[in-house]
Design a binder for these strands. Sequence first.
DNA 1: ATCGCTGCAAATGCTTTGCAAGTAC
DNA 2: GTACTTGCAAAGCATTTGCAGCGAT
Lengths: 156, 156
Amino acid sequence: MGDHKNVNQESFKGMLREKGLKVTNQRIYVLEALQASRKQHLTAEEIYNKVKADHPEIGLATVYRTIQVLRELHLIDRINFDDGSERYEISDQKRSKGHHHHHHHLICVKCGKVFEFKDDMMEGLEASIAQKTGFQVIDHEVKLYGYCKECGGNTD
Amino acid sequence: MGDHKNVNQESFKGMLREKGLKVTNQRIYVLEALQASRKQHLTAEEIYNKVKADHPEIGLATVYRTIQVLRELHLIDRINFDDGSERYEISDQKRSKGHHHHHHHLICVKCGKVFEFKDDMMEGLEASIAQKTGFQVIDHEVKLYGYCKECGGNTD
DNA sequence: ATCGCTGCAAATGCTTTGCAAGTAC
DNA sequence: GTACTTGCAAAGCATTTGCAGCGAT
């Protein structure tokens, strides 16, 4: 299977070494599990189970610690859908340094499904905020709640 | 002190009764504590401590249970600033039924202060999403991260 | 050989729940 | 009088941490 858009494993190793961290199988496995499930918003436990399928010796604590590392390297994003666990997904690759370009999440309040929506509109909002308040926005998180096409506005 | 914009206590009592819930002092106290701290994003524990100052007999569990009631009545919103606890604030009164009109939160990544920003721009985004994806948005949550005016773009 | 990393189990911290006594209606 | 509520303590659950052994460099 192609890893067309995924962060090159070699560059991941380089990032680890640059930070003085060691390249371990566990760290590779966790990144791979996340890359294999792009756009799936996995919990730590779900990542743990995916890795464990092939490498039963891994521990949940290691998954949590690896998640921290991947977040520091900006390789994954954390999202919270208020279902009791934090969830993680491979980060969108950004354009200009330091300015992330996330997608939005559309959360259906009826069926619970999560959809993604890519949009540039936030840039206008961020510019307007900078002008009005002097607050310099570098990142954002947008969650939209409503009814997906299938659940279409039914309120029952 | 004026409770100009606060939900009338009488209407709160009415809302409780309509749901078959009882009007208790504890519920009144919790709502009052939140109203007295508008725009302050209190944790359950902070609410508990505020109420306890005047009414030492209240229990933390009751605060948590009352928060659930207030959320069901849409009198408060929950926000999570990733500092380990959920936070709550008096809800913006909405315009059209069922369509909330929240403010956004600007979170300074340096000093941690949280600012509010009111904006109508989301409506355009929501319309655009409905058109493109068929997803009908009824609510949204926007968090913007960056540097506040005081911390002004310093990266150290 | 060093120092970081791992797995396990224990600990933590927020939130929820069971229960008997108390309170609103 | 009958539920619903409360306060307390205990439980629950996701996440973090201490530690001894293991592994990468």
